[in-house]
Simulated scan of single mutants.
Amino acid sequence: MNEKFFALPEEKQRRIVNAAMEVFAKNEYKRASTDDIAARAGISKGLLFHYFGSKKELYFYLYRYVEQMVAEQVTDKKFAEITDFFEMMAHGAEKKLKLVAESPYLMEFTVRLCSSRDEGLAPELDARLQQTLDSAANYFKNIDFSRFRPGVDPMELLRMLTWMTLGYLEELRRRGLPVEVDQVMRDYQRWSEMFRSMAYKEEYL
């Protein structure tokens, strides 16, 4: 990526990022138009490609941008004090949902990204998604895994809860319903308690 993008005023960077996220959120990757992105950002298409060498480069920049934004939101003071796996998952879910509520196209972009089957993105996208899941282990360095029953894989639970949440949000998107953080968290807590009862030793229930 051209370093000149980072030399732009922050307001202009945000305008370009928001425009790209909106277009990629509303369209499958191959149908997302760089002409539309440039027009929404208020710049020429040539300048867009001056900052980002290709459409694919812009797409993966957005991936990293969202990943960093979520990480910064989740890893607050409370995060460092949590030792319970399910409490950590709920904390992360609440923080991410607040981001979704504040950023109208973040959820749609993320859902499309995670469900993309575009041949122009695979296998690079699949590899990056797997890296994201694998790196999530770093978030659990303070977690007490001795609470789990023998044979239970916490990372498998992480994947299941993540995909359930994404599917839930995708259903809201398809039905044109708003993301109401309190309601989603009530549903999430219900799922979490179900998994807790199956995964934790009796003395931790």
Rank of each mutant, 00 (worst) to 15 (best):
M1N: 08
A7I: 02
A7R: 04
L8Q: 00
L8F: 00
E10A: 10
K12L: 08
V17G: 00
A20V: 02
E22W: 15
V23N: 00
F24H: 05
E28N: 08
K30D: 05
A32K: 02
S33K: 11
D35T: 13
D35I: 08
I43M: 04
G46R: 05
L47F: 08
F52P: 00
S54Y: 09
K55W: 04
E57D: 12
L58H: 03
F60E: 07
F60I: 07
Y63A: 09
M69Q: 09
V70P: 09
A71I: 06
Q73T: 02
Q73F: 04
V74L: 07
K78N: 10
A80G: 12
E81W: 15
D84C: 05
E87D: 10
E87T: 10
M88N: 03
M89H: 07
H91K: 02
G92Q: 14
G92A: 11
K95Q: 07
K95E: 08
L97E: 04
K98C: 04
Y105R: 06
V111K: 01
R117K: 06
E119T: 00
G120V: 10
D126M: 11
R128I: 01
A137G: 08
N138L: 08
I143M: 10
P150W: 09
G151T: 15
V152R: 10
V152D: 13
P154L: 13
M155E: 14
M155H: 15
M160F: 06
T165A: 07
G167F: 07
R173A: 13
R174Q: 14
R175N: 13
G176T: 10
V179C: 08
V179A: 07
Q183Y: 01
V184K: 13
V184A: 15
M185T: 03
R186T: 07
Y188I: 01
Q189D: 13
M198N: 03
M198G: 03
M198Y: 04
Y204F: 15
